Simulated scan of single mutants.
Amino acid sequence: MNKRLMPYYLMTVPAVILFFVFLTLPALQGVYYSFTNWNGFGDNFDFIGFKNYANLFKDSNVGNAYWFTFKFAVVVTILINIFSLLIAMGLNAKIKARNFFRGIYFLPNILSVLIVGYIFNYLFSNVFTIWGQNLGIEWLSTNILGSEQHAWIGIVVVAVWQGIAYNTILYLAGLQTIPHTLYEASNLDGANRWQEFWRITFPLIAPFFTINMVLAMKNSLMVFDQIVALTNGGPGRATQSISHLIYTGGFEGGEFAYQSANSVIYFILIATISIVQIRFLQRREGEM
């Protein structure tokens, strides 16, 4: 080994140790407990093989949580990328106080998810309902978070509002890499704005689109804080995500081993979806 590189390798040792102790080791312990019937406390448990995994496919609560999570993730991922791209294109234009507006749009990203969730909980419960009553708007007069059919829409609104910030910054970075001479040449050729977008803008920011799609989908699949702050999985179990089910069942419901198995499957699904997304979108990049 090159002696000159030794100090750099040694500098990574503390980070590797911390990563292993606080991330890798707990994950391995979770996999180990998923093959047992441990309830989360005490030392008495037995190995039961794949029984927990088999029972997951028979559990209606697990099925409902997966359906809600995937529905939520797809809608949020699409909306975040549409709005963030539109905002980024607007901020990339030659407008006054452009840097000020960039800071304003990035502000939601630095706020705590729980704090934002509790603020919107108050807005949905008190402010918006009063506005609806005063304006005579029936659908706005009731708290949307109390409806089994529509509570998930309120969570989508909060997740999209806060998720747009980070994606907008990434799209801005991508838009700034496009030479203006390309747009000048397209104007000389008579191309309209729509043609410029599909033939110049979108192909050149395709790598940023890939990153944003993967990150937005991954974050949406792992939704937890918004659920806790807005509905806590209710009404009933209408808005219970997979993460929320794993937490409540594992730490409050005495299903530690059972939800450990659920978390293993959950991890495999998220990793698989992310890999498929990356490969598909990167293939699309090459075709553009």
Rank of each mutant, 00 (worst) to 15 (best):
M1F: 13
M1V: 14
Y9W: 12
P14L: 07
P14Q: 11
L18W: 11
L23F: 12
T24G: 10
T24F: 13
L28M: 15
L28R: 13
F35Q: 07
N39I: 11
N39R: 12
G42Y: 10
G42A: 09
N44H: 12
F45A: 02
D46F: 04
F47S: 08
A54D: 07
L56Y: 10
L56R: 06
A65H: 02
W67S: 08
V74Q: 00
I78R: 05
I78M: 04
L79G: 07
L86N: 06
I87E: 03
I104Y: 04
I104C: 06
L114S: 15
L114F: 12
N121T: 09
L123D: 07
F124Y: 11
S125C: 14
N134H: 15
E138N: 12
S141W: 07
S141I: 03
L145I: 11
W152F: 14
I153A: 06
V156Q: 07
Q162N: 10
A165R: 10
Y166W: 14
Y166L: 14
Y166C: 05
T168S: 02
T168Y: 01
I169C: 03
I169S: 03
A173Y: 01
A173S: 09
A173T: 10
P179Y: 04
T181H: 08
E184V: 05
E184L: 03
A185N: 04
S186C: 09
N187G: 09
L188Q: 09
D189N: 10
A191R: 08
W198L: 04
I200R: 07
P203N: 03
L204A: 04
T210Y: 01
T210Q: 05
N212H: 04
V214L: 10
M222L: 02
D225L: 06
Q226K: 11
I227L: 04
R237P: 01
S241T: 05
S243P: 00
S260K: 06
A261T: 09
V264H: 06
F267P: 00
F267E: 02
F267G: 05
I273D: 01
V276Y: 00
R279K: 15
Q282V: 03
